[in-house]
Design a binder for these strands. Sequence first.
RNA 1: GAAGCAAACUGGUUCUAUCGCUGUCCUGUAAUGGGAGAGAGGAAAGUCCGGGCAACAUAGAGCGACACGCUUCCUAACGGGAAGGAUACCUUUGGGUAGACAGAAAGUGCCACAGAGAAUAUACCGCCUUACUUUAAUGUAGGGUAAGGGUGAAAACGUGAGGUAAGAGCUCACGGUCUUGUAUGGUGACAUACAUUACGGUAAACCUCGUGUGUUGAAAAACCAAAUAGGUUGUGAGAAUCAAGGGCUGCUCGUCUUUUUCUUUUCGGAGAACUCACAAUGGGUAGGUUGAUGGAGCUUGUGCGUGAGUGCAAGCCUAGAUAAAUGAUAGAAAUCCUUACUUAAGGAUACAGAACCCGGCUUAUAAGGUUUGCUUCUUUU
Length: 129
Amino acid sequence: MKKTFTKEERLCSRRKIDSLFHSSSSFIVYPFRVVFLVGAIQPTSAPVQVILSVSKRRFKRAHDRNRIKRLMREVYRLQKNEILYEEVNKLSLHLDMAIQYVGKEELSYELLFVKMNKTLKQLVHEISS
RNA sequence: GAAGCAAACUGGUUCUAUCGCUGUCCUGUAAUGGGAGAGAGGAAAGUCCGGGCAACAUAGAGCGACACGCUUCCUAACGGGAAGGAUACCUUUGGGUAGACAGAAAGUGCCACAGAGAAUAUACCGCCUUACUUUAAUGUAGGGUAAGGGUGAAAACGUGAGGUAAGAGCUCACGGUCUUGUAUGGUGACAUACAUUACGGUAAACCUCGUGUGUUGAAAAACCAAAUAGGUUGUGAGAAUCAAGGGCUGCUCGUCUUUUUCUUUUCGGAGAACUCACAAUGGGUAGGUUGAUGGAGCUUGUGCGUGAGUGCAAGCCUAGAUAAAUGAUAGAAAUCCUUACUUAAGGAUACAGAACCCGGCUUAUAAGGUUUGCUUCUUUU
């Protein structure tokens, strides 16, 4: 399977985002905070839709936020298939989620890679239980 | 000549591989696709001015509020820019630097500390004078005086002469600033000359004069519009006949009558309400399209102009996202720095991320480059 990250895999609808943040469960694997909402499978859209966000309060400069979001996106894109999609497809669920960056400063790519791996495994554990 | 520091201007690293993202074009399949090419800045930032564009508002005038304030020019416009003027400061006397640069001669207010006094002047010392006491001096009380002392950022324009009891722009001469007028030069600010009036500062105190300003701001605005549920208008219809209402009767059966209900009418009919169906219409929500990227456009050449700019010709198309793309990783190169000391090792490569679009201003900015100033050292004369 290709390691793509197209628009279908992102969460864009305002209504869905509102419902995600109003009724959902969450956990923290530093430096990420994950908010997710499990639903029935939707054949028209991708199995998982995600938002990546960095707080403006923590990083005032726009180019710092851009840099971290790009690193997060890369790290998520490379690992989501093996860990997350298999499990979601097996359980035939639909997952809306947001990954927020709660760290105070920019971390290296290698460290973020490891942390994302941990985070996604934790997420699989949460939804399968 | 070298080094260092400061300021201004300029400047804004490159290539390869792998995996990706957003548009565009070409192309293929039953469907998934494939290929080509494009994809952040000089400030994209601050959102401080000006304009385009859009919606709404809008008789005219005045008051108020806010902004601006030397001249001429540039510009779509500006609070921006160019060239000049005056002022202040610096100067190597060539020049350079600075800016809320209209009005203090319309009015009001204010002027710390010090000082006698800070603005219809003032009398501390001093100077002159009158009265009283006294032999006289001294002293006491009153008056005149801004020349001198001292204070201050600033003391009623400065110097000299006359004048006077002593003094005073009180008068005169020369000079300074300044008002108004005339003449000459300049498009003009203004300059020069002559005459004339006045003589503390502060307008970044109120204020006065002149000029300008409708409000909002792309989350503006226009259009399309599924499903569902409402609104409005029009047309048509009005369940149940084994039912319901009413009449006949004390009641039941039975029978007669009406058929959505109400009001009105002798009837025909008329009106209103309710429900349903159909049609039309309008508003709203998710979403989509436009706005929105070909423009006060960019590059080159050339003419005009001191210049900001501008005319002409040729060529070019150069981001367009929308929970928001323009990336990540690895390797190499380039420039600089440090350490070793001759080609290695390590490090650094800034400020910063488009959001309707332009013109400015302000602020941030590594390495390298250019110019100017200052300091030190060295060489030659």
